[in-house]
Computed example of a mutant assay.
Amino acid sequence: MKQLLLLTLLGLALWRCEDPVTLDSRFVGPELVVEAWINNASEPQTILLTESQDYYANRLPTPVTDAQVVICETENQQPTSNCFLFIHQDSGRYVWTPGPGETIGDVGTEYGLGIQRGDKQYASFSTMNRTAMVDSISFQFEEASLGLEEGLYAQLYARDQVGQGDAYLIRSTINDTLLIRPFELILAYDATFSPGNDADGITFIFPIRFGINKLDENGAPIPLVSGDKVEAEVISLSQEAYLFLRIVQEQINNGGSGLFDRPVANSPGNVIDLETGETVLGFFNVGAVARAERTVE
């Protein structure tokens, strides 16, 4: 009994001695952050510009509204006459709106991003890679199992291009709602999740095909019901863009900042401050997109 009382008192003493500790984030000042994920669909393309902020700042990033933004076709990093001007709309969103049937780009073409803000200039380059060959979306009934409720689920049937080194971002939309939570993001390298294997020119493996389903808060797939519309798109990535998103995904899903979690770090971008030669935050990628959609009857 005395031992139990002693342990209880010791626990209370330790609990009362806990003090919150705020570490120095070494934040100097705001820097430009570029989110330029462009594809060749004939639809408005958006680039988001914001400012970085302190790690402990509990607010939305400050939008950059005073920049000039353009993307041009380039040859050996020299601009041609074919350019696309992005106009600021609101909250740091710069938009290019195509005419009927107009798109940005062809596979194999190099593009340059130019940003002017006051006397500061930024630039980046991206070549549009090929995307996967998308066939269809299928619906299959699955029996109840560990972590899976009985019901109807979608699968995306797409084939990796022949030749290793293709990287893809796969996104799905269910009933016009884009699934953009970190654990709903699907990255593929050739036909699997990552490089370092011999998979090439084959249908995406099952976890990738099945990953287009909506997930609940615990990460469990939610079965479809009659009338649900499922859309999926496969967007090509450069090798650097794949690495950027993989690191971002790992950082966001890093857990509770425990002892064995990865240290917090910025993912390496590809946008350069032309005055200093330093890389700013964010990324520029121009990708080809392939899509499929189907509705549950």
Rank of each mutant, 00 (worst) to 15 (best):
D273W: 00
C17M: 12
S136K: 14
Y111H: 12
S226N: 09
E231G: 06
N266S: 06
E293L: 04
V230R: 10
V225S: 10
W15K: 06
A232L: 04
S138V: 15
S138P: 04
D176E: 14
G92W: 05
Y111A: 02
R159V: 11
Y55F: 11
G163D: 10
L148I: 15
K229I: 05
E143C: 06
S124L: 01
N254R: 13
V34H: 12
G258N: 10
E217Y: 08
T103F: 00
I202T: 09
G269S: 09
D216R: 09
A199K: 04
F139A: 01
E297S: 15
G105R: 00
N254H: 00
G227K: 12
I272H: 14
F183L: 06
Y157L: 14
V64C: 02
L4K: 06
V33G: 06
I235E: 15
D261F: 05
I180C: 06
L152G: 04
I170Q: 11
N197C: 02
G269M: 05
A67G: 14
D24H: 10
N253V: 02
N266M: 03
A265T: 06
G196N: 07
G277A: 01
L179K: 14
T74S: 15
Q155F: 09
Q121V: 01
G255Q: 03
I186E: 13
